[in-house]
């Protein structure tokens, strides 16, 4: 158990023009095998056109207990939200 293959997170861009999306995890000894395994495990039905793998331990995640301060700044920037901009209907769909 001491020598368990490390955990990898898998991200796949399913279609051109879309972002990579987290699809799941897997175990693999190194990045090459992780890539092979991602292809075998997560694109069995050819969902993927592009795959990223990253070792789970290398991901820095926000701490939910600090949810307030982390999310406050963007919440207060109302101009980031599309509804902030009052656009006349005549301009058409946007």
């Amino acid at each position: 158990m001491a020598n368990e293959w490390p955990l990898w997170e898998v991200f796949i861009r399913g279609q051109h023009g879309m972002s990579h999306r987290h699809v799941g995890s897997l175990h693999a000894p190194d990045e090459k095998m992780a890539m092979n395994n991602a292809r075998d495990v997560y694109t069995r039905r050819n969902e993927g056109v592009s795959i990223w793998v990253v070792q789970a331990k290398d991901i820095t995640a926000s701490d939910p207990s600090e949810k307030g301060p982390m999310y406050e700044p963007s919440e207060s920037k109302v101009y980031r939200h599309p509804t902030f901009y009052d656009i006349p209907d005549e301009a058409g769909p946007m």
């Binding site: 175990h27 693999a28 092979n36 075998d40 495990v41």
Partner: peptide, 11 residues
Amino acid sequence: PALEEDIALAN
């Protein structure tokens, strides 16, 4: 020998 390999062998 591992779940990942099991799946790959089947592919």
